[in-house]
Computed example of a mutant assay.
Amino acid sequence: MATDPYADPKLEGVSIRSLPKVSLHDHLDGALRPQTIIELADEIGLDVPSTDAEELADWFEDQSDSGSLVEYLKTFDLTTAVMQSADGLRRVAKEFVEDLAADGVIYGEVRWAPEQHLGGGLSLEEAVEAVQEGIEEGEDAVDRSGRDIRVGQLITAMRHADRSLEIARLAVAFRGRGAVGFDIAGAEDGFPPSRHRAAFDYLASEFFPVTVHAGEAAGLDSIRSAILDGRALRLGHGVRIAEDLEVVQQQGDSVLVTFGDLARWVRDREIPLELSPSSNLQTGAIAAWGKNLEDHPFDLLYQLGFAVTVNVDNRTMSRTSLTRELALLAETFDYRLEDLEAFQLNAAAGAFLSVEEREELIELIGEGFDA
């Protein structure tokens, strides 16, 4: 197995992995351990590209590095196939929590679409209950190891389907039983949030938090619809908000930028951007600016005062971790510990928690970075 240079990276002599982190954009069906996929596939007689965990990890990374969100999403056919039973969902959810904790995450939100996990005969409610059981088993295991973590579910509807109102009602029904928010995911281009206005109206009437995938495979119109039709409190990715910025002058580190109305609204309202650097490269979300991490508008958005957060999107497909994403950003943009702390504070402030819980989370982050 090749050595991962980002397994335990240091910044200013401090292990990035040891720092307290908040994960807001992390898909359950994009975060399976390759060995778990192999074992679950064997149980149901499903063929996999390789029965060697390292080779299967290679396959996911190669297939995902296509420059197209549509092609990237095809890799989920395999992961969702082994998540069609209560036992499979419980195991994946438990390991998800354990892997977050091992990455230094103290609060995470896991998004997944129950409607994609009914092939084994589960009902929507049974699927959500199975994932919640796995989350709680994972939290208990982490607690026994002497660490603390809390994970909430973001119940997700597929934007190309017609079940969003049903899924929204499901999410609200599980408020207080694990569900902390709602999302729509899947092929973004051609399926704007406005198609799901009835679901978003219902969620607004129930005062239930919403994040929306927008500004990844589609541009400003998608972001505008997420805010106006979806009442999104956060933007899933949202990287293409940079299309509403015009750099009019740049001298050294000084940049003069003019804002469009949408970009100014997102910045001034401190609407968190759930940026996922490696994934954004793989799916071509930053193609307008380039193909390398240094081309990513992450640093521009950060310097302009947007509420940027750092996320993995899909750990398996991008073969990454939150630690690795932070290390890559620090290496590329010469960030210091105070910058990494700012990203975590942004994420904590945007978490779908009560104000008291967010304040506690912010305090824990401060203490961890000070230590």
Rank of each mutant, 00 (worst) to 15 (best):
F259H: 12
D52F: 03
Q153K: 10
L304T: 01
R159D: 10
R195P: 02
H196N: 08
L24E: 00
R231N: 14
L228H: 11
E109I: 04
A161H: 14
S66M: 04
Y6L: 11
V310L: 09
G305P: 13
E357T: 02
D295P: 02
D8N: 15
Y72F: 15
E126K: 13
L124T: 09
V48C: 05
A218I: 00
V180F: 06
G13D: 10
I155G: 02
T309Y: 07
E125A: 03
E139A: 04
Q249W: 13
Y107S: 08
Y107V: 14
I37E: 04
A348M: 07
P193G: 09
V172Q: 09
F182C: 03
A127D: 01
S50T: 04
A307S: 14
E43G: 00
L32M: 15
A307M: 04
A41L: 03
R269N: 14
S254W: 09
V255W: 07
P193C: 14
A199Q: 08
A93F: 06
P20D: 11
F208D: 06
E43P: 00
T332D: 04
E270N: 13
L78S: 08
P49K: 08
E71Y: 02
H237E: 07
E331Q: 11
D183L: 04
P49H: 03
M158C: 06
L345E: 05
D87W: 04
G219N: 13
G290R: 01
S354E: 10
E137H: 01
F207S: 15
A327K: 05
V105R: 04
L364M: 13
H237I: 05
M1Q: 11
V151W: 06
P20L: 00
I362P: 04
F352M: 12
I241A: 02
A218F: 05
E206Q: 15
D201G: 02
R269D: 13
A130F: 10
A141M: 01
D339R: 12
Q116T: 03
F60W: 02
R234V: 14
L28N: 04
A327P: 08
V312D: 08
P209S: 09
I38W: 02
E338G: 01
Q250I: 05
L301G: 05
A347H: 03
G290N: 11
D189W: 05
D339F: 01
V131S: 12
F333P: 07
G119H: 12
L73F: 03
D201L: 01
L275V: 14
W112E: 01
A31Y: 02
D140L: 15
E115D: 11
A53I: 07
D334E: 09
D140P: 00
L56R: 03
A113L: 01
L326F: 08
P193Q: 11
A198F: 00
N311Y: 01
A287N: 14
A285R: 11
D29V: 01
D62W: 05
S18G: 00
S15F: 11
I149G: 14
D183H: 11
G230L: 07
D87F: 01
R163I: 06
E98Y: 05
I365C: 07
E43K: 15
R33M: 03
F352G: 00
V257F: 10
A81C: 10
